[in-house]
Nucleic acid binder design. Sequence first.
DNA 1: ACATCATATGCCGGTCACCGATATATATAG
DNA 2: CTATATATATCGGTGACCGGCATATGATGT
Lengths: 118, 118
Amino acid sequence: MTDRPLQEPTLLLLTALADEPRHGYGLIQEIDAISQGRVRMRTGTLYGALDRLLQQGLIQVEREEIVDGRARKVYALAEAGRSVLAAEAERLRAVVDEAERRLAGHRAPATRPKGALA
Amino acid sequence: MTDRPLQEPTLLLLTALADEPRHGYGLIQEIDAISQGRVRMRTGTLYGALDRLLQQGLIQVEREEIVDGRARKVYALAEAGRSVLAAEAERLRAVVDEAERRLAGHRAPATRPKGALA
DNA sequence: ACATCATATGCCGGTCACCGATATATATAG
DNA sequence: CTATATATATCGGTGACCGGCATATGATGT
């Protein structure tokens, strides 16, 4: 399946769905808020990613509704998406920790015995 | 330019250079260590990324040397690369924090069979 | 009446980072 | 003498993301 690391827009999408279900346009706004206005997700990215994540089973359409005459699809994080997001967050945190440790000047021994590579 | 968020292989590359200069193959091994063996960077990704990062001024060739009859290029993190990595780490940490915060305040979605629809 | 912004979904062409394979070369271990 | 580790490099393909465009309604402004 998709063992590949998530790119940031996708990571933000799953994060925006982690607390409650939202519809497409609401996700754009939520991502804008999460990133302190630094990320404006394009609709091209959004709906493409939504389709992809649906197909991968990481999210699901919770319901469809009509608000003020405008149709909405409300997406929810699926179980699979929840665990993928958790794993991804844990992995990324480790990398970020390591980056900041090294930038701070502490040389944490990441050294391993020779021949560790298969 | 480098306004776009770094992808993970690139992030790992800069991280691997953050404590000391390394040559190409050494970077593959270091990234293997940092990621606890989870990421095996391909040479196609590595040398392509190295060229790109050189051109962006995020890294530089510190020296070239010959060890045991094999040529090496030793790369070092440039000042620009150091600040980009720092900014990227800070940004990613915020996203990861937010993701874990939302996951912890768990709101499990109704696991509905497909076909259920409003 | 007309314009324009905010809301809302969706498609399509292009770009580029990454992947996998391949090529080349030396040193060491079996 | 063959395989593995070390070491650099190129190339074609894939796919996520970007930017632009199309479409439609409701609210606000002039």
